[in-house]
Structure formats: C-alpha cells, structure tokens
Design a protein around this nucleic acid. Structure first.
Lengths: 209, 209
DNA sequence: AAACAAGTGTTGCAATTGCAACAAAAATGA
DNA sequence: TCATTTTTGTTGCAATTGCAACACTTGTTT
C-alpha cells in the first residue's frame, strides 16, 4: 500500500513534516473540521481513519464529493470560492496531516531528498485517483442501468483479477455510485440473475460469462 | 497557463530532459502512436497540439477516455493489461514529450532543483485534472437531463465568473459529455429557453437566473 | 461554386427509469 | 435479549429518455 511517506524512514518523515510546518491532528468520530482549514489552501493526508467531503450547494442540496480513507489526500481540489461551503466530516476516529499548500509548492532549499520522495508519492497518489475517477466516469457514461452494472462488474473484476466480486459497499451505496435509483437497480440485478449472467449471494456477485 | 516546465528556463529544461532520457516527438495529424509507447510505462506530455485517448473494449466498442490538449499529461493512468487495447491519436500536428515512468520515479541524485520543480508542476497538473473529473462526475450524477444541463451551466459559469457561457464544443459533443441523447438534450434546452431560464444564441448560452 | 459532410431542431413512440410505498430481512446498539 | 434503525426486495405507475427518422442549416473540401 503506497502512502505519502513511502520510502521515507521515521526520521526523514519527522524532519520533513517539521520543515513543512505540518500539523498532525487526531479527530474523534463525526467531527466536521472544515472550519479549521478553510482559511488557507492546504494539502491534507489521512494517516488513518476515513472522512467524507461534502459540498453544500447554495440551493440547499448536499453532494458527497469524495469518501476518503487511509493514504488518501484531499484539499487540493477544493475551490476557494467564498460562496461554496464544504464539510470535512470524520466517519471514524481519524488522524490527519495538514500541510500548507504554498509551503509545499515553494522552492525547497533543504531536505531535498525526502522532499522529492514525497512529491513522487504525491504524484502516484493523485495518478491513482485519476484512474479511479476515469473508471467512475466510464461507468456513469453508460446509458442504461444494465450497462452501468456490467461496466462496474467488468472494471472491478478486472482490477481484482477475479470473477467473484465482493461489493465494497451496500447496494444502497452502489446505486448511489452508479447514480441510479436503488429499486430500479435491484430490479435490473434480478433480471441479470434470472437471465443467467450473474449469481448473487448477499454482497458477493459471481460473473458467469 | 501552467505547464510541466513552468518556472524552469530553457537550459534547465534541456538538461532535465536529457537526464530523464526523454524523447521529443513531432507527429502530424491523425497518427496513432500507441504502439510506440505501449511496451513501457510512460508519462507523456503535450507541448502543443491535441490528442484523443481511446479504449477499444474486448467486445468491440470504443470509448473516448480523454481529449487532451497543450500542457496535458497522459499515460500514467493506462493499465498495463495486455487484454486492453488503446489508441493515442493526434487530432492535429502535435509535439509530445515521452518520459520513462521508472526514470522519473527513481531517486534523482542530480538535477534536484529542476527535478523538484517539475514534480511540483506534475502535481499541479494532476490536481487540476482531478478537479475537472470531479466536476464531470458531479454533472453525470444528476438524474435528469435538465439537472445535468443546469449543473454544467453552474460549474462553467462559476469557473469563468460569467453568466454567458461560450460552449467549448458542439451540441453533439456536449450531449456526449453529459452522456445523454442529443435530441433529448436539444428538447430540454428548448424548454429551458421557453421557460425563461436561459437565452441561446448559437453556442452562446446566457443564464437568466 | 458545387458537392459533400457534419451539426442542429423537431417529433412520435416505445422502452427505461424514477418514485412511492410497503413488507421482510439484516444489522446495530442499548 | 429486545428494540430500533438500516438495508433489501418488490411492484404499479407516471415521467423521462432514447431511438429513429427527417428536414434544414452550417461548415468543409475540391
């Protein structure tokens, strides 16, 4: 599992964080810490735990932008528009490292070796994220629920090199991920089952083609 | 406009590229150069021109994964699965820089200053890309064509700080971006117009709310 | 300038989907 | 353990959408 400090030892990491004036913060469950970081552009990193990034639209609706877990980074994509209001909510006990974006993006006269390594890790993490986003978009782009499901199955099965898919979330959440109505999705899964394309046992789906 | 070599002068760039053993290639229009880079994991960068990244699915369908222009990077998200076949097609005359992924991700004993700067730029470019993908996902997640259009308008208008939207593509392409049927979208735009939400003049759309 | 290709507007109709509502099952937690 | 919440399966129905087909406009090429 790759993280932001992969290939750095504890000492290098400690010095780097000090040099970047990073804050390490431990949150308990269900804390919204957006107000703590909203003033400055940051790069955040989840050492352990998980959080949800939510946007509150001006019209009152709420959108879950991202669900982040250990080793995920965040903050860099948030627009600095005063009209937009976000929530950074911890879903469990969570340890977060918060760094000043400017500090990271300035010339770094010292600590170059570990700094370079961190930047490489940072790039790997973002590249992985883009790949995930591309997959999500490819799924959402399919026109029917059936095609969305099949595309999701195809990608997941491919990534895990396995014909048995162990859903990483509930069916309710899967419907949300596919951006379709849950009951309509349930209907479609039943049809795929009846037509012999898949076998379903709880949240385990086996591809039969 | 930020690029991969922003904040580097010509000499630094030249040395860095030499050190990374990068290839600079000029393609004419409509060339598929995927076969030239498929063997090794690369990071590609478009100095000028534009290309389309297409995936050929095993079942015969083709998906446009990305349309890339000047200053875009590519290659890092392509899976190394032998079953997947891609096309990297130039849409115009295009100048591409191709770098070996491994070379970039290895410890860099020399050239550290310009290397660090490039890594910072690389991160900025990927971060921007994630932001774009998030926006796209947010649009695709809306359930009705109307809501997709309004979300697209909202984001575009916000990013440009302007109530007049000059579509960066044809209506046919917009429909593709929103993943909806073109004629159905056309129908919906007409209704938005009739209801007084927008004014349309060619590919210029004015938000009236 | 003529010929051709690509993009756009419009419509009827059938298929798909979202919505609402409810019961049953499973998971959670006190 | 029992109570409560969350998840899941199911169905009828109305609304939305995709599809097909066509005419018309716009843009491109020779």
């Amino acid at each position: 599992m790759e993280g932001l400090f992969t290939h750095l030892d504890e000492n290098e990491k400690k010095n780097l964080l000090k040099h970047l004036e990073a804050s390490i913060i431990n949150f308990s469950e269900n804390i919204n810490f957006y107000s703590m970081v909203k003033e400055v552009k940051i790069i955040g990193y989840i050492e352990s735990g998980c959080i949800e990034i939510i946007r509150n639209n001006p019209n009152g609706s709420r959108t879950i932008i991202e669900e982040l877990v250990e080793n995920d980074i965040f903050g860099y994509t948030i627009s600095s528009d005063p009209g937009e209001e976000f929530e950074f909510i911890t879903k469990t006990k969570t340890k977060v490292i918060v760094m000043d974006y400017k500090k990271i993006m300035q010339q770094q006269p010292m600590e170059l070796t570990s700094y370079s390594q961190m930047m490489r890790n940072l790039f790997e993490l973002t590249a992985k994220k883009i790949k995930e986003k591309n997959e999500h978009i490819e799924i959402l782009t399919k026109k029917t629920i059936r095609d969305k499901l099949l595309e999701y199955f195809r990608i997941t099965s491919f990534n895990n090199r396995h014909k048995v898919i162990d859903l990483p979330f509930t069916y309710t959440e899967l419907a949300e991920y596919l951006a379709v109505d849950r009951s309509a999705m349930s209907r479609e899964i039943k049809m795929l089952k009846d037509e012999g394309f898949i076998a379903v046992k709880g949240r385990k789906i086996t591809l039969l083609y």
